[in-house]
């Protein structure tokens, strides 16, 4: 009987969730989008995904061996980083771009800052931002026509949409992902399936994607048309570009998103606003990467100002002040 009495400090409520379990769920949720990428953009997509994942895991292992840190490649977080990075790349990029991007993401964005849990931005997006700044021509011109697998060097449908507020694509094409774009961003159905799976498994909070996509849809509706306000094609604005992929799978990263529910809603809305600003008035066609990275940086600020009320504390500010003797 005495053996079973365990005396420990708080917390006493534990959960069966593990890093590995959560990361496995994310990998599972990205499988439909990855398959869609291979179907839509050809077998080369698989090569890009494999190169990215393998180099991400290898970079983590080599760094941790080199600096004599505990090996954490079994928690799958490097796998998720590699997979997410690959899904944000154009289908025709040279194969060394995902490799360099993954190594940058793991070593510089994540491990140097202390590894999983202490990285200040989403590693996959940091890797993408780096390769985008380093080789902008590859990252903005290596597109492929869907199902035809022909090289397509030109503006993506999103770039055209930002200028005119119109797109030639039908809703069916948009939902199935039959358009030029990054590997994993086009097939909306696959992304939604993965996102809903994650929300159902309680891995991610719905507030971030809903806040993000809601703001983006509202903003595109109001400002998205050159003809006047409240005339924008908000459905296309939502489905073109990487907002669905980013909002479900990247903005929801635990380490770099706020801890409170209201804070998460704030982060979603903020990312939506920044995306809109970049798309409508910025010089880049797409702003999801920078929007999420920006909100990653703002996250500590959100967590500082949006604090849940202590249980048992007086809700009334006046009462609280009185209770603490007027101390601020």
């Amino acid at each position: 009987m005495e053996d079973r009495l365990l005396v420990t400090p708080a917390p006493h409520i534990t959960s069966s969730k593990t890093v590995r379990g959560i990361m496995l769920d994310v990998v599972v949720s990205l499988v439909p989008a990855s398959i869609a990428a291979v179907v839509i953009f050809g077998v080369r997509s698989l090569l890009i995904i494999l190169a990215s994942v393998v180099s991400a895991v290898a970079a983590e292992a080599i760094y941790q061996k080199l600096f004599k840190k505990p090996l954490t490649i079994n928690d799958m977080s490097a796998t998720v980083t590699g997979l997410l990075l690959a899904l944000t790349l154009p289908p025709n990029v040279p194969i060394w771009i995902p490799i360099i991007g993954s190594v940058f993401a793991i070593v510089i964005a994540k491990q140097i800052f202390g590894g999983l849990g202490t990285n200040f931005v989403n590693p996959a997006l940091a890797g993408r931002a780096f390769v985008l700044a380093a080789w902008p021509l590859h990252m903005t011109h290596d597109w492929v026509t869907p199902l035809g697998y022909d090289a397509l060097t030109g503006a993506t449908p999103l770039a055209a949409f930002n200028g005119t507020g119109k797109t030639a694509l039908t809703l069916r094409d948009l939902l199935l992902g039959l358009r030029a774009g990054s590997l994993g961003e086009t097939c909306i159905i696959a992304l939604l399936a993965g996102g809903i799976y994650l929300i159902a498994r309680d891995v991610i909070d719905w507030r971030i994607p809903v806040g993000y996509l809601g703001t983006l849809a509202l903003g595109t509706w109001i400002f998205g048309s050159p003809n006047g306000f409240f005339m924008g094609d908000w459905i296309s604005g939502l489905l073109l570009g990487g907002a669905v992929l980013g909002s479900f799978f990247m903005a929801t990263d635990y380490v770099t998103s706020p801890v409170t529910r209201r804070g998460r809603l704030c982060m979603g809305i903020g990312a939506g606003v920044v995306t809109l600003l970049i798309r409508l008035w910025g010089s880049y066609p797409e702003g999801v990467t920078y929007a999420i990275l920006f909100m990653n940086l703002v996250t500590p600020l959100i967590d500082k100002y949006i604090v849940p009320k202590y249980y048992g504390y007086a809700h009334d500010v006046q009462a609280r002040k009185a209770a603490t003797g007027g101390a601020k």
């Binding site: 510089i108 700044a133 380093a134 080789w135 902008p136």
Partner: peptide, 15 residues
């Protein structure tokens, strides 16, 4: 190799 333009920009300097 294909030069990385980012290294000549301020972010490249910081990195």
């Amino acid at each position: 190799f294909e030069p990385a333009a980012v290294m000549l920009t301020p972010p490249g300097g910081f990195i």
